[in-house]
Nucleic acid binder design. Sequence first.
DNA 1: GCCAACGTTGGC
DNA 2: GCCAACGTTGGC
Length: 151
Amino acid sequence: MKTEPSTFSLDDLVASPEQTTMWEGVRNYTIRNWMRDDMAVGDEVLFYHSSCAVPGVVGLAEITRTAYPDPTQFDPASHYFDPKSDPADPRWLVVDVRFVRRLERTITLAELKARADELDDFLLVRRGNRLSVMPVTDAQWTAILALEATG
DNA sequence: GCCAACGTTGGC
DNA sequence: GCCAACGTTGGC
């Protein structure tokens, strides 16, 4: 899961009540469907910082609540307000995400790109990808976290 | 249903 | 700040 640290960082997650946050503001149908269909309580998350000096994976988190309606879509004061969303059939969903641990070091985007062959078409390093949430296979997870120790 | 225009993402 | 890539919108 990507986030801009200037908006919501791993530190912000740590500082959140119960070190847990609602992953609000997803406005992409592909991601909405993954959240709805594929995210389960206990699923592990790579916490990724984007649009910053050194983009990369900085920590681990986990899903603590499955998809439910994103309240920001009904809040006219919210940046994420969606007047086309019907409260009887909410268009946008959130999941809850809880902090697990910081990585010992940032696993940078540059490293992930350099090892793209080992990561078996990891969406994050695919050209042109703009999704802010994306699935990670077990093999990719293992390969990525192996970098933490080895550099 | 096509597709051009527009807005957003996000690395650099 | 630039710009490539891609999703969304809306005219037709």
